[in-house]
């Protein structure tokens, strides 16, 4: 994978961490444009990107991630940040394809969980930070299909947004996998998502979740 992080302290720490879990970092850069270049050159299984990067020190990382995905549409991207912004989550997911992760940097300190997320996103999954979901759930609006979901279904959807599989959701909610399957089908139905590749529908469901906010 390739890594873009401008603070040497965090960059080196991340390389050590990934190395210890047999994930090879083929290129580590400290700015947005280099990330796009390296990604195109190495065609990695995953790009990990910090949001705030030189030269602009604003949302450079988001823009670099989107740019890299435009050039390599299947490139999985995991964006890390000191803050999570629903706005950026929506932009990252807007293409409607998987292989997108957006996490708070502190999640890295849960090593096992983080490595798991890295592998999941590299495999084409989606992983939204629980905080993105928490903010969305704190709204009590009734103006979207999301409002039609039962509390149980909303819970399933937020776990889905974090990128968990049906089995993992079942374990977290202390129910059977079959029950989770029933919930997810009901969610897809209420959000008007037709039968298709299950993975893709999961992304679209999460996107609908984020889209339930106005533009």
């Amino acid at each position: 994978m390739v890594l873009a992080e401008d603070l040497a302290l965090l960059r080196d720490g991340m390389i050590r961490l990934l190395d210890a879990h047999h994930i090879e970092v083929v290129a580590a850069v400290d700015n947005g444009p280099s990330l796009v270049r390296e990604a195109v050159q190495h065609r990695p299984d995953l790009a990990i990107v910090d949001v705030r990067l030189p030269p602009s020190f604003t949302d450079e990382g988001i823009r670099a991630a989107l740019e890299a995905r435009q050039q390599l549409p299947d490139l999985p991207v995991l964006v890390l940040s000191q803050y999570v912004e629903q706005l950026y989550a929506r932009e990252l997911l807007a293409q409607g394809t998987g292989g997108v992760g957006y996490l708070l940097k502190d999640r890295v300190s849960d090593i096992a969980g983080f490595v798991d997320t890295v592998r999941r996103v590299a495999a084409g999954g989606t992983a939204m930070d629980p905080e993105v979901i928490a903010t969305l759930l704190s709204r009590q609006g009734s103006r979207s299909p999301i409002a039609a979901l039962t509390p149980r279904e909303t819970e399933v959807l937020s776990l889905m947004a974090e990128g968990r599989s049906n089995a993992a959701i079942a374990a977290a909610m202390f129910v059977t996998e079959k029950a989770v399957g029933k919930h997810t089908n009901s969610i897809f139905g209420k959000l008007g998502l037709q039968q298709s590749d299950d993975d893709n529908r999961r992304v679209l469901a999460v996107l609908a979740f984020l889209e339930s906010a106005p533009h």
Partner: peptide, 21 residues
């Protein structure tokens, strides 16, 4: 941060996403 990154319109958009109404 979103205000620094995206200016006033981005900031408003972000407030709108988090707003229950």
């Amino acid at each position: 941060p979103v205000l620094a990154d995206r200016g006033l319109l981005g900031g408003i958009e972000s407030l709108a996403i988090a707003s229950p109404v």
